[in-house]
Nucleic acid binder design. Structure first.
Lengths: 337, 337
DNA sequence: CTGAAAGCGCTAACAC
DNA sequence: GTGTTAGCGCTTTCAG
């Protein structure tokens, strides 16, 4: 078993309160005894039991990171940002993969609350307000990631989705494209809606008709598989000459699936159809892929989320006035356009 | 503040010991009072403070996952395996990215110990025995991942690296390759050594001379950048005709970097040089990449690691007799060979 | 079946 | 400058 304060106190022949003080750099403690205690603590390889400390202080220096799927390459970057910033401030982070499953998510949030995490950073599996209000009815501090949840005193860290997608479409139009399709994901999700808005905004700005048959959304799988299936839907519905000349995608994973389907059908990229993704996951820049995409600052996003959360923890939830912190996306032009 | 046992006890007009019993399904508690208490607990949205419980029970149902870099696509899969298996058994997992930095690693391990994690799953930043003995001198249960550490009662979950690489080289030789190079990583690491052994084993088996100039290792970066630089070294050292006709790589990331360098030099894959990776990260199967590779069961590995750890926690460190649990790799033949 | 009380390891008033 | 003590929220003997 681990050494405790008492063990040290016994050896040092002082009360254990003194040991506590010595080890916590309290001003009022004799220099000699302090040194003696510190030496003893080192010798005995004393590790404070932070759980006991937390019980008293009501602070665990622990946060929960609740995300849908660490396997989507967007998240590891974010997680790294969260984690590194957390380490700097002496926090540890619980990783929870909800798998887009609200039941699992509830379970996780409960478990985290019971473990007394100081706060939560999450990309919720559902953005339904009532669901979230119920889920988070534990007066716990939460920062949302990549989801905008318009509840008072919660803040969300997001990329400017609309602007990002608008830039992408602007660029396509400048290159002469007229028939541009939008391949979306979770139809009701904030990020998807915003990106779709950006798409529409650009079209309108350029007096191009918004044609609903060019707007499609993935049903079940929010990764390559989804994009792949979605592209086949396009291929079935349209004659070759009616196919869009460009497709902007909700994210890179979808884009990759779409590209695969196109290749299988000997449709050239970008000559026949140009593709733009969103996220800029690491593999989009591979020489083989070279996907044009709207880049999100993933690492930065994680870092900002963590810092925002800590700020709230230290200064109260209203210390961050913004309900939304918006990061700027960048269009990265590569070989698929 | 959260509701506590006492709050419930007050309302229920019983002692809080009774509440504890009722909520923990103790046999000896009156059915009516039990129901009343459970109802009350629900109404008051009672969440047990597991930290207080842990202080008493000396068990936190928490483990630490210490890995070098969640950003390397090998790890998210493993992490998912760990995490999902953990969830099933009601454990939570702390994610720690060491960034291959032993100092950070020490810091993390200490923090985790202080947070009283029940055990650790780790891919250590260094496999030095003395380093690890010092690091883990806290009688804490540890399962190693993808690193084999020959210390009593510790167990390691690994892929059969030697066999995997051997298969890869066997296959190349069968296809007629004679000049096969090995692109390695951390020269002193277990996994690298084993893979290199597999490479040599196959060559010897087929009476092909082992030529040290065909064995190279990455220096600083264990990802694409490393492979990229390494390939340029090859290109500088050899005339075109002397270049190997195939390269087996320590992992997919290196392979990807090598491929990029080859493309830049207009060397065709697989016609001029065939490439085989190791890991089978998700992007290796992309239609653009189609990397032939030795596939590791990453998700499985995480799951097994977690289960092994729990087994040790429940039944003692010697309950897992194997010092090493070995998973079988599979050669996935795609388009780079 | 239920209550009283000790104690997990630590912090922080409060005395002296 | 140091010791005593209460208490964080919970579990678990021990009595009754």
């Amino acid at each position: 078993m681990g050494t405790t304060l008492k063990d040290i106190a016994k050896k040092a022949e002082v009360s254990y309160a003194t040991v506590s003080r010595a080890l916590n750099n309290h001003p009022d403690v004799n220099k000699n005894t302090k040194e003696k205690i510190i030496k003893l603590a080192n010798d005995m390889n004393y590790q404070p039991n932070t759980i006991a400390r937390s019980l008293k202080s009501k602070k665990t220096n622990t946060i929960g990171l609740v995300i849908p799927d660490i396997t989507n390459p967007f998240y590891p970057q974010v997680a790294r940002g969260v984690e590194e910033a957390a380490a700097v401030s002496n926090y540890n982070v619980f990783l929870c993969n909800t798998n887009w499953n609200p039941e699992r998510e509830k379970h996780y949030v409960k478990a985290l609350i019971q473990k007394q995490v100081d706060g939560l950073i999450m990309t919720p599996s559902s953005e339904n307000i009532n669901y979230l209000k119920e889920l988070l009815d534990f007066n716990i501090e939460v920062v949302f990631l990549s989801s905008y949840i318009p509840i008072n005193n919660y803040t969300s860290i997001v990329t400017d989705n609309t602007r990002g997608m608008e830039k992408a479409v602007d660029y396509l139009i400048k290159k002469g494209h007229k028939k541009i399709a939008y391949a979306g994901s979770h139809i009701e999700r904030y990020a998807n809606k915003e990106r779709l808005n950006g798409y529409k905004k650009s079209l309108m700005k350029h007096n191009i008709n918004i044609d609903n048959k060019y707007i499609k959304s993935v049903k079940n799988f929010y990764d390559q598989r989804g994009g792949y299936k979605l592209m086949y839907e396009f291929l079935q519905e349209f004659k070759k000459t009616e196919l869009p000349s460009a497709i902007v995608c909700y994210n890179d994973l979808l884009a990759l699936g779409i590209i695969q389907a196109l290749k299988e059908n000997n449709i050239r990229i970008p000559e026949d159809i140009a593709i733009i993704g969103f996220d800029d996951i690491s593999f989009s820049s591979l020489s083989e892929v070279q996907l044009t995409t709207v880049s999100q600052s993933k690492y930065e996003m994680g870092k900002v989320a963590l810092k925002t959360l800590l700020n709230k923890l230290e200064n109260g939830s209203r210390s961050t006035k913004e309900n939304k912190i918006v990061l700027s996306p960048k269009l990265k032009i590569r070989k698929t356009t």
